[in-house]
Nucleic acid binder design. Structure first.
Length: 680
DNA sequence: ATAGGGTTAG
């Protein structure tokens, strides 16, 4: 075999560097093999292994590896193969190769561990990760900063932030990457304050951040929702000339949007010279998070004309928006779009479309879609969608049927399944069945969480089993939180005041409970208490989240907020609500003044009731839809008692089917009654 | 001797 000079190696090096296709890679590979160079210059072989793997040919890479790693004590090639696997998501193979490496007596080094840990991190393999941690200690590589950072990252990605923090604290020297790993860890663990404190420390230590750090920090600020901090991050990026970086621009767009400042997000978005999928998807999400669905739709049109084509994530964002808005018509349009575009529809997207149909009131289509999925392809979420969908409509029996069918088919229910089935039982008043499901949880090895107790309390409370509900709270093995007390408060107004005291200790900032509590006081005419609560709210700077209701009309959507004077049809709609109020009063409707939280005379308070967003939307529907059409409205908050009662009368007098989806469930009004039987 | 860690939309 002829020994080739270094100039030949350099030539191949160049060749590999500029090689962009699988075909040319194969050519280089075969030419190196025939010349025998591949056995002499292993770094060339290593580069080919990496390239094959990134081109989706891990098996070719592996056979090349198998044919050239003849020197048993040589860890370089092993590390290369492990790196190739780990960086391309072949987590099982990474760990398999690592264990072969150990069994063959090849010693690992500081280049081995970061990749093995990465494989553990990306699949949340905490047990394997801990074994590797042990190996690291035994082989004496714990002092290496790359290994340390990878360890912190592994623990964090496996959800064990505390263990990661322990490793971090014990590090003697921390470089920028270790700090960033820890900042990201806190951000991912939804502890944005901690993340920002760490970032402050990097600044105090005089460390210069790079773009990765900024992206993490921006994302932490987004979680925090603090516009001022967002501006500071934006400013920092400008001052340090980071704003050229596409990732940073994207993260700033998302950050502003999550802080509620979509206008600023759009400004940054518009100023970008290049946009990738993440840019468009971030902006779309931003509009939807801020309730600006129509802007999102305009942007989607623009996106289709851009050089960046929508991907499944885009579709997921749009479909979820329709779910949120309750717009079946738009949802159907996007579903059609998804089918016609050639995008890959994975289980997540398909389930999201099913969920859209179920939550927009078209259970038949949801169920048909479900039936079209091959039984082996149905995952827990597919079942959860149907169970939750039927539950929201008050069809508890049907939800239970799906639940038992799911068990028969051997699909293991998860915590969401039980939340859905328990709330289905609650809405349908199926207490015995609900108790049984709750008991089954432990048998099916799903540990009851606080939210499941909240469902139980809600169910028992509604059904009038107040003491059992209260006992349930007292006997919980977990500390009851605001939602548990809130469930008791919502369901049984009689025990409201007891629950309220606990509630305000636990969740002093939660606006919803203030509102609920003032309703309870108002219902028993305790106006002094109502006033005091409202004073409290004002002092704490709390505002009730703005109510809005949405109805489809023609090819468009009409949205109304409380006492709306922005909607173009408001004047006609006001007239209609007022005349309807007169008519249903003659039929026996009594305005429920406790639903109006205003310090005004009764007559005005009654007047105010007319302008609740859901009443405006329903009136709009009755005015504009054909008489036989169902008036379907989606409200972002819980439907109020007064509107609920009014809709019963309206459905009777005007002979209309009215469907209202509120934050909790569907209400089908027909002939003077509601499918929720007046408890919801 | 060759080689390496952290980030953004859902």
């Amino acid at each position: 075999m002829r020994r080739l000079g270094p100039s030949t190696e350099g030539f191949y090096d160049q060749l590999l560097k500029s090689c962009n296709f699988l075909a040319s890679l194969r050519q280089i590979h075969s030419s190196l093999t025939t010349s025998g160079l591949i056995n002499q210059a292993l770094h060339l072989g290593a580069k080919i292994i990496i390239k094959y793997t990134t081109y989706g040919e891990p098996n070719t890479a592996r056979s090349l590896f198998n044919s050239i790693h003849n020197d048993k004590s040589y860890s370089f090639l092993w590390n290369t193969m492990i790196r190739a696997y780990a960086n391309n998501g072949h987590c099982v193979e990474t760990l398999e190769l690592y264990s072969t490496m150990r069994r063959s007596g090849i010693s690992s080094n500081s280049y081995t561990f970061p990749f093995v840990l990465k494989a553990c991190a990306s699949n949340s393999l905490i047990l394997e990760g801990k074994v590797v941690h042990g190996d690291i200690i035994r082989t004496g590589f714990l002092s290496d900063s790359y290994v340390q950072a990878a360890l912190v990252d592994m623990y964090a990605k496996c959800g064990q932030t505390d263990d990661g923090c322990k490793v971090f604290d014990e590090m003697s020297v921390r470089d920028l990457v270790s700090w960033t790993v820890m900042i990201t860890a806190y951000e991912q663990a939804e502890k944005p304050e901690e993340a920002l404190i760490l970032f402050q420390k990097t600044q105090q230590e005089g460390l210069l951040s790079d773009s990765v750090t900024i992206v993490s920090v921006a994302s932490a600020v987004g979680q925090l929702g603090d516009v001022l901090k967002a501006q500071a991050v934006h400013g920092y990026a400008i001052c340090n000339a980071f704003l050229e970086d596409l990732c940073i621009q994207n993260s700033i767009v998302a950050m502003y949007a999550r802080c509620g400042n979509v206008e600023k997000a759009r400004l940054v978005f518009d100023m970008m010279e290049k946009r990738d999928l993440i840019s468009w998807n971030s902006m779309l999400t931003g509009y939807i998070q801020n309730g600006q669905a129509s802007e999102a739709l305009l942007l989607f049109d623009e996106m289709q004309n851009s050089d960046c084509k929508p991907n499944p994530v885009t579709a997921l964002i749009l479909v979820s928006a329709c779910t949120y808005l309750g717009s079946r018509q738009l949802g159907r349009k996007f579903h059609g779009y998804i089918i016609n575009s050639n995008m890959k529809i994975d289980a997540t997207l398909r389930n999201a479309v099913m969920d859209m149909y179920a939550k927009c009131g078209d259970l038949d289509t949801a169920e048909n879609m479900f039936n079209d999925i091959h039984p082996s392809e149905r995952n827990v979420s597919s079942w959860n969608v149907l169970i939750a969908g039927y539950g929201m409509h008050g069809h508890g029996r049907k939800a239970l049927e799906f639940f038992s069918q799911m068990l028969e088919e051997g699909v293991k229910p998860d915590h969401i399944t039980f939340t859905s089935i328990l709330s289905a039982c609650s809405h349908a008043g199926l207490i015995d069945e609900g108790r049984k499901c709750f008991a089954d949880m432990t048998k099916l090895s799903v540990k009851p969480e606080v939210k499941h107790y909240a469902c139980m309390v809600d169910m028992l409370g509604r059904a009038g089993c107040l003491y059992e509900a209260f006992d349930m709270i007292k006997q919980m093995p977990l500390p009851p939180n605001d939602s548990v007390w809130g469930a008791l408060l919502l369901a049984c107004r009689i025990h409201g005041e007891i629950a309220a005291n606990y509630l305000f200790q636990l969740e002093p900032e939660h606006t919803g409970y203030f509102v609920l509590m003032s309703n309870i006081y108002a219902a028993s005419n305790k106006w002094r208490e109502v006033g005091k609560l409202r004073e409290d709210m004002k002092n704490k700077g709390l505002k009730k989240p703005a109510a809005f209701s949405v109805i489809e009309y023609g090819k468009d959507i009409q949205g109304f907020h409380t006492a709306d004077r922005v909607n173009p049809y408001w004047k006609e709609v006001y007239k209609k609500v007022e005349s309807m109020a007169v008519e249903i009063k003659m039929a026996g409707y009594m305005p429920d003044l406790s639903c109006a939280l205003h310090d005004v005379e009764d007559e005005d308070r009654e007047h105010m009731l007319n302008y609740h967003s859901e009443k405006l939307a329903v009136a709009f529907g009755i005015m504009n839809l054909t008489p036989e059409a169902v008036v379907q409205v989606t409200k972002n908050l819980r439907v109020c008692n007064d509107c609920h009662s009014a809709f019963r009368f309206i459905s009777y007098i005007y002979r209309r089917k009215i469907i209202v989806r509120d934050a909790n469930r569907f209400h089908h009004f027909e002939g003077g009654t509601c499918s929720c039987n007046d408890y919801w």
